[in-house]
Amino acid sequence: MANMLANIFGSSPVRPLEKHIDLAFRCAKKLRPFVAAVIDKDHERMAEVRGQIETLEHEADNMKKEIRLHMPKSLFMPVPREDLLELLLVQDKIANRTKDVSGVIMGRKMSIPEPIADKFLEFVDSNIDAAKQARKSVRELDELFTAGFRGAEVDLVTDLIEELDQIETKTDEQQTKLRSALFDIEKTLDPIDAIFLYEVIALTGEIADMAERVGRRLELLLSH
């Protein structure tokens, strides 16, 4: 009977969600050294970073499952459980896409042609920035819960999400430029390699897309 009071508290999903986005971001961040190694054709380093990406993605995945297990339908929370689960899902996709990009490059033993190397790296950086901004926004979750999703804290998070949108728009622009740069040299490439380069660019861009969707999900929470 002593635990009557203790047990009415379900396990809070807030800190775990913050930890999860942290894992997802750290995973995405690894794309920078990975792509740098691809450009340098440093196969040993590529394999090493690819291993790190896989580990982080796996950790994020496990954490996602763990959080889901601790969010039974009987939980009464200030925001709908479905919205939190959706948020978790898109957070996880940041790590998934990172793994996909590195997977395609590794699997096809791809290289990134010199003329587009700089633009490619910049593009990767912006995507990582988007993931970082998503992390910064999600890290405000506990403050949001403390403030009861009202007032000044909501404005603060709204600003963060706006910044996130701007970063995502920037990655879109860079993506267009990168594609046209690739188009300029595609005749010099092996056709299949060229097709997969387009594919990898699209996949990389999805990291920022997912980060932006994290922002959308957070916004939904704010509107409750």
Binding site: I8, S12, L75
Partner: peptide, 28 residues
């Protein structure tokens, strides 16, 4: 204790508690 549980639920209704397990409330 029941009074305190009621009070905690009240804070929860004001969106103050991150997660309340309604199964336990039912058990009480």
């Amino acid at each position: 204790t029941h009074t305190l549980v009621g009070a905690v639920l009240g804070v929860g209704m004001a969106r103050g508690i991150e997660a309340i397990d309604l199964r336990v409330v039912a058990r009480i």
